[in-house]
Design a protein around this nucleic acid. Sequence first.
DNA 1: AATTCATTAAAACGTTTGTTTGAATCATAC
DNA 2: GTATGATTCAAACAAACGTTTTAATGAATT
Lengths: 220, 220
Amino acid sequence: MAEAGSRTTDTRSRILDAAEVLFMENGFDGTSMRMITSRAEVNLAAVNYHFGTKELLIQEVFRRRLTSLNQARIAALEVLEVEAAGAPIKPSRIVDAFFGTALRMAADVEGGGHTFMRLLGRTYTEPSEFVRQFLAEEYAECVDRFLTALYRAVPEVDRKEILWRFHFMMGAMSYAIAGTDALQLVTGKFDDEDPSQLAPRLMSFLLGGLRAPLAEASLR
Amino acid sequence: MAEAGSRTTDTRSRILDAAEVLFMENGFDGTSMRMITSRAEVNLAAVNYHFGTKELLIQEVFRRRLTSLNQARIAALEVLEVEAAGAPIKPSRIVDAFFGTALRMAADVEGGGHTFMRLLGRTYTEPSEFVRQFLAEEYAECVDRFLTALYRAVPEVDRKEILWRFHFMMGAMSYAIAGTDALQLVTGKFDDEDPSQLAPRLMSFLLGGLRAPLAEASLR
DNA sequence: AATTCATTAAAACGTTTGTTTGAATCATAC
DNA sequence: GTATGATTCAAACAAACGTTTTAATGAATT
């Protein structure tokens, strides 16, 4: 049967969970099949049996969570659009629907959302060709809808400028989640005492950047 | 003789140049010694002869450029401090001394500065244990001086808040440089027609984030 | 011309890599 | 209980990995 759900947990899920953590910690190339199967406590051949190849396993690790994340983002955006009933939506609400949703997922430590968001963040700068294409497809619709919404929300700002700032916001968020270890060392000891403080602080920073006066070069 | 400088270029430098590009494109684990020596057109054993091990080669790739980058940053800061002559320095000037200096290095495409900054950006989220420790040492003094300067420039803002925002700014910049390929795909086609536009746009975004009103959670 | 030392060259070292194979085991259906 | 199909297992595969070794080459010194 395709359907599953044993008590301890499925072999498939155990592999995905183990791979998620190891990919986040060591990258794709730094994580061997044996590390994965050993952590998942399954036989070495199980990965190839259930997923085919390592590449397909990587794709499944992303698809498992990314699809629902982007669905949640779109759902949040649709709530805003219904509420607004044709009236313009505040940019801050749109930004929250996109980035806030991700940050809420990143706050879920026990469920693995935190691990996944860290993995996702580091993957943006580690773009194996096949993973890039996959991410692009997985993101296409969601990003498209949010950009459209932002264009409508801030019609007075050049669309190219909005694209740039969306880009910058993605960077700031990904780093805030994925790069904590690295910058912890760079900036000396950094109190991770209260990770729940990240979201409001980051949202405030993102909105500040979004609302910043335009650069001189972009006014020419 | 230790001194070198043949016409075409040194074996050592050819290895470093090749490694820099390949590490940026494929990561450390995704780049083999054979890929490096093949690209550099040197013998396979040359890397171990000149650098000892792969890890030491990685460190040298960073040290070669990072030391001078951080020296340039400190020099720019010292110019500001002398000019101010004890008076408070505008935060935007400090931010430019740190991030603008890096962006100017990233604008140097032919000299390899662009490649290196992309490598550096992706390394923050790919922190092999030994590379983290190395980066931390290499950055320590510079970051320390800039944080001190920022604390002095904006005494009314909580130091912890400044640390967070410095963190966010690092993220936005690293991504803007390192993550272009990935986000290019995520956000559809992105015009890299004029990479010189990046710097002013990003600086404006960073300053907007730095000046943003404090988050509610950080005011409690 | 002979010697010395740094560098380059080709070949091999033992591990580890992702993947495949064929038999053993399991649960379910007949 | 026997047959069926899915899953697990131990073992092996060729290929690629970082590193080492030993000999050949180069240019400078004596």
